[in-house]
Design a protein around this nucleic acid. Sequence first.
DNA 1: TAACAAACAGTCAACCCTGTCTTTTTCTTG
DNA 2: CAAGAAAAAGACAGGGTTGACTGTTTGTTA
Lengths: 227, 227
Amino acid sequence: MVTAATTRVPQEERSRAMRARLLEATVELLVERGFAGTSTTLVSERAGVSRGAQLHHFPTKNDLVVAAVEHLTAVRGAELEAAAAALPSGGGTRAVLTLLGDHFTSPVFTAALELWVAARTDPALMEAVAPLEQKVGREVHRLTVELLGADESVPGVRELVQATLDLVRGLGLANTITDDRRRRERILDRWAQVIDLTLDAAPGPLSDPTDARATPATPATSRETTR
Amino acid sequence: MVTAATTRVPQEERSRAMRARLLEATVELLVERGFAGTSTTLVSERAGVSRGAQLHHFPTKNDLVVAAVEHLTAVRGAELEAAAAALPSGGGTRAVLTLLGDHFTSPVFTAALELWVAARTDPALMEAVAPLEQKVGREVHRLTVELLGADESVPGVRELVQATLDLVRGLGLANTITDDRRRRERILDRWAQVIDLTLDAAPGPLSDPTDARATPATPATSRETTR
DNA sequence: TAACAAACAGTCAACCCTGTCTTTTTCTTG
DNA sequence: CAAGAAAAAGACAGGGTTGACTGTTTGTTA
């Protein structure tokens, strides 16, 4: 917008930092206290921001939370990309599963979980969460396919990848109640075997050529139920 | 204990019914409004019970919720057993997955989800939820093994069953945000194939679970692929 | 530098929720 | 039938949360 002066944005700078602190604090509190326990008062205290300033940036709690959701999706995406980049290329199925398993048991997942559950009974929140969740979902899917080197034009492969993601989501959920890493590891060990076995051993079982959905992209969920 | 009179427990009867209504209302509200939205006031209104009576039966909100958790686990168990009983014996892998998929997308699952998530940041609630959840978990596992006719003494089979349950849990979670039945069905179709393929085609390594995929695997086609 | 707008600070009222307390009803029992 | 206990009813206080509101500082612009 406005740009072109000597002393560049000293205030806008502070504002930005304030916003960031507020969003960070929100996410932290989501993890520590859950959605219901994340009061705006707590957030402002945690962020070291006055209540007035908070209300200036985010007039309503919904505004704050929605912004936090956006912030969180960005963080999630970045984390995943980073982890993927750090992965030895072609490092094997198990390594990919480790990556996914770690992501879905990380604090950001926990925070996201709180938002999902809250959104279920909060239309305004759902409106913000749903599309962003789809976006992350697509991204994770794409990344997984890429890392696994899977060929989705082969019937059944796409579903296998989706199943993998739903599996780690389930593991992530279970993890919030009882943190049993060993169990998780064993399951992922086994699952890696199954994937490897299935991916190159049994591409298309049982004549089911009804439609080979080799569609390049139409992943995850489609919210708009045509009606 | 006390038994042997003419007028059989008329009041105790009413009390019992009241308790039941309160618990039912609680579960309903968990589904409709989420945990945070389930205030004791709402519950008493919904149940048609005066606030005083409610407080008489459940002095604290925690008492109410804990009782609701117990109630819910009982309901879950019963529902599962009933569904299993209604299942054509030896009805095939896919039918079992349908059963599981249905359970993990039902209202009782939704209610349980609310409790899990709330319990994560509420020690008192966690204390009640954790053991009961384990119980249900074990029960579902046992049931699944039984219905699938799986032999858990074979290495890898147990993990596959666990993976199946975590998968449906993940699908259930996804379902609360976006209800996409078709997607679910396709994934479960595929999963059934994988299970069948894996269970009798690749029992696992002889003597070493860490290295399973080297096994030649006898092409036993004994398993019924119903359809 | 003066005037104006945006950012920031902090108080306050309205609201809801929980759990205590007192009162009334209903059942049981001697 | 009377007395006492359990159950049910409803008012109320205390605590916490949200967002509106007023005042203050900081930055921009003429």
